[in-house]
């Protein structure tokens, strides 16, 4: 028990990295999701194909490979420094889950009933108005549970940034393991519990999102 009290503050030092990467990459993923989800519904073939290419590349390979690729390859290939490893992590996680979420955005918009499109057209709305006033608000409601689920996935994904030398909670856990071999179960137990505590509000929000998505829908 003494060890638990001793370890918690040490591991919790990584919380600011874990939480900041979580928030930044989640926001980045949401932006990518709406942007590319809407691009894939564009009338322009080039825009559609290009975003389709992005989505398939990032859905087809794994996050850890993308993370290492961005970490090793981008500076060498293009001579760009992304600034810091924090940005590499945020970019990798954001681009990866942005690709998954863009499919959620796309399918939700497509699942809005055809009658809604026709009614909006009949009311003489422009294409943009139709999307903004009629289709989008209905589609967003359906997206909420999936966005909640994927945010939990993003939280799980943030643990990977410890592999590119970011000092998140897993990183501090690994360092402690070096000096307290015999207490390894306690150390990783604390790390797991901390991740679960971070996930709890997200789980709650997901449940809430499911309720909102179901409300007032006949089925």
């Amino acid at each position: 028990m003494d060890y638990v009290i001793e370890f918690i503050p040490q591991i919790a030092r990584g919380l600011n990295i874990t939480i900041s990467v979580l928030i930044a990459s989640a926001l980045f993923a949401y932006i990518m999701a709406f942007f590319s989800g809407l691009c894939r519904l564009s009338n322009n073939v080039i825009v559609r194909k290009f975003t389709g290419f992005y989505v398939e590349i990032f859905r087809g390979t794994s996050l850890i490979v993308q993370l290492f690729w961005l970490y090793y390859a981008i500076p060498m290939l293009f001579g760009i420094q992304l600034g810091s490893n924090w940005w590499v992590g945020v970019f990798a996680i954001g681009l990866n889950y942005g690709a998954y979420l863009s499919e959620v955005v796309r399918t939700s918009i497509l699942s809005v009933a055809q009658g809604q499109y026709e009614a909006a057209t009949a009311l003489n709305m422009s294409r943009f108005q139709r999307m903004r006033i009629v289709i989008f608000p209905q589609a967003v409601r359906m997206m909420l549970p999936e966005f909640g689920n994927y945010t939990i996935q993003i939280l799980k994904g943030t643990s990977l940034v410890s592999l590119i030398a970011m000092s998140d909670i897993l990183y501090y856990g690994d360092i402690l393991r070096g000096s307290y071999q015999q207490q390894t179960p306690i150390i990783y137990g604390i790390v797991l519990v901390l991740y679960f505590i971070l996930a709890l509000p997200l789980i709650w929000l997901t449940k809430k999102g499911e309720k909102i998505a179901k409300k007032g829908v006949a089925s």
Binding site: G157, S159, L170, Y188, L192, F196
Partner: peptide, 23 residues
């Protein structure tokens, strides 16, 4: 189930690899 699902698989791997032998 919820605990396993919402914690990172990477940490779970480390737990089994590093922590299981000293339990």
């Amino acid at each position: 189930m919820e605990f396993i699902r919402s914690t990172p698989p990477l940490v779970q791997l480390f737990f089994i690899y590093y922590a299981l032998p000293v339990l």
